[in-house]
Structures are given as structure tokens and as C-alpha cells.
């Protein structure tokens, strides 16, 4: 982990057509911080996450990731979109884990993990394979390198997906409901890997419905609703004694 690992957002706005999904979002994530985002579906929490690595573009506002303007460069008059090459370079420093894993089905677990370093960074194959093996071992899948995604359980696939993101040596890891598509009994194994990662000092932003994980692992908890961050604070405080009525209502439903 090299340089920065911070996220700073000021006044982020985003709409899909008439529907405003993010309004005036301010967010600061320090290096090594774990930030969990909770909220009802359609509250904009996934969209916020996707904006941070450029799967969605923001309409206005300031977004600095790893200390530099993300996806755009600033001039006196405007923000200009970066070339695909530069955007890709910024993205390699941010890992993304999806709800549906999105492993490449035509590659083995090991090839999936190697794909980033070999195809994007041009790392030597032997070296990448060795690193992939280590990463798979670190998520408890050392013996599964030659399996194809279809031959792995959901929990195993998600752990491979985490290893694939880590192979790029990102400074920030984003998790978009990483356990929502899993069988209840497989949730624990993925959360354990994430907890381990947090302990090692990775900057993480996690959109989740796992309140236990949010309470135990995160440093900051955000509650979002209708495109606004309604409440934020230390997770135990927010979960135990929410101040906003909207947060209270939501937590009453899920806890």
C-alpha cells in the first residue's frame, strides 16, 4: 500500500433523467478507515459507491480519490473528462467487489486473480501466478486455484473476487453489498476475509445490510436515504441511539 487511500467528496450530485439519486453528498474517508454505508434500497448508497470508481459519473461536485480529482482534471472554467487510459490508471488503484461477484466465467480462479496484473499492468505471468496463489491462500482458497467460478460456491466466488481486486494492490477497496447474494451460511466466511483486510489497514467503503459487521468493523457509519446522508457517526452510537427519526425507523425494521 503506497501513497494515499483517502476519499474526499464535496457536494456530489447525480441524477438519472428526472430522478435525483444523490444530492449534496459530502464524504471524507481517511487512509485506513473503514466506512460502512447502510440504508434502504434505492437510497443511492450503491450509486455513491459506483461513482467513487467511475462506473457512474457524477453530475457536479468535487470528488478526490487518492488525493487527485477522479476521472476529470480541473481547469478554471470546468472539469474535463480524462482520457480512458488515465481513467483506467486511476481505477487500478481502487478495488471493487460486486454483489454478483462478476468473476470471469471463462477463467479459473487463479486466472481471474491474475487477470488484472497480467492484462493491465503487464506483470510477468510466473510472478503473477505466484502472487495469485498467495492471495487465494490468504482468503482460504489456496487449493481452489484451478477451479472455474461455476465450480465454486457463492462464498468462495466472492472470496476469489476479493483476491482479484487485491491483486492490483489498490489503496482503496469498495464493497457493493458483498454478502447480499450469498446463502446465509456463507456470509461469515466473506465477512471474515473483509475483517482481516480492515485489520491490515485497508481503506474500505462497504455498502452492506450486515449490521453486526458494521458495528464491529467499521470506524464510521453512514445512513443514507433518498440520495442524502441522513446521519453519520461512530457505528455503535448510530446503531444504538440514532438521532434522526428516519434512521430510527429504518433500524427498527432491520434490527
Amino acid at each position: 500500500m503506497s501513497t494515499d487511500g483517502t476519499i474526499h467528496a464535496r457536494g456530489i450530485r447525480k441524477s438519472f433523467g428526472y430522478k435525483t439519486v444523490l444530492q449534496n453528498i459530502d464524504l471524507d474517508v481517511a487512509s485506513g478507515e473503514v466506512c460502512c454505508i447502510i440504508g434502504p434500497s434505492g437510497s443511492g448508497k450503491s450509486t455513491l459507491l459506483r461513482c467513487i470508481n467511475g462506473l457512474e459519473t457524477v453530475d457536479s461536485g468535487v470528488l478526490k480519490v487518492n488525493g487527485e480529482d477522479f476521472g476529470y482534471y480541473e481547469t478554471d472554467a470546468a472539469y474535463h473528462a480524462l482520457s480512458p487510459k488515465k481513467l483506467a490508471a486511476q481505477r487500478t488503484r481502487i478495488g471493487m467487489v460486486f454483489q454478483q461477484f462478476n468473476l470471469f466465467p471463462n477463467m479459473t480462479a487463479q486466472e481471474n486473480v491474475m487477470s488484472g496484473p497480467v492484462l493491465v499492468k503487464g506483470t510477468d505471468k510466473k510472478q503473477a501466478a505466484k502472487r495469485a496463489q498467495e492471495l487465494l491462500a490468504s482468503v482460504g482458497l489456496g487449493a481452489f486455484g484451478d477451479r472455474y467460478p461455476a465450480q465454486l460456491s457463492g462464498g468462495q466466488q466472492q472470496r476469489v473476487a476479493i483476491a482479484r481486486s487485491l491483486a492490483m494492490d489498490p489503496e482503496i477497496m469498495l464493497f457493493d453489498e458483498p454478502t447480499s447474494a450469498l446463502d446465509p451460511e456463507k456470509v461469515g466466511e466473506v465477512l471474515a476475509v473483509m475483517q482481516d483486510l480492515a485489520r491490515k489497514g485497508m481503506t474500505m467503503v462497504v455498502v452492506t445490510h450486515e449490521m453486526g459487521f458494521a458495528r464491529e468493523v467499521s470506524d464510521t457509519l453512514l445512513f443514507m436515504d433518498e440520495g442524502v446522508i441522513v446521519e453519520r457517526g461512530a457505528p455503535r452510537e448510530v446503531l444504538a441511539s440514532p438521532k434522526e427519526p428516519r434512521t430510527q425507523a429504518f433500524l427498527k425494521q432491520v434490527l
Partner: peptide, 12 residues
């Protein structure tokens, strides 16, 4: 999702 995964790894 496949395309998004490739994008997030920084593939051209």
C-alpha cells in the same frame, strides 16, 4: 457486470 468488473480492473 462482466464489463463493469473488467472496467474496475482498469482494462482498456
Amino acid at each position: 457486470g462482466q464489463i463493469e468488473a473488467a472496467d474496475s480492473l482498469g482494462m482498456s
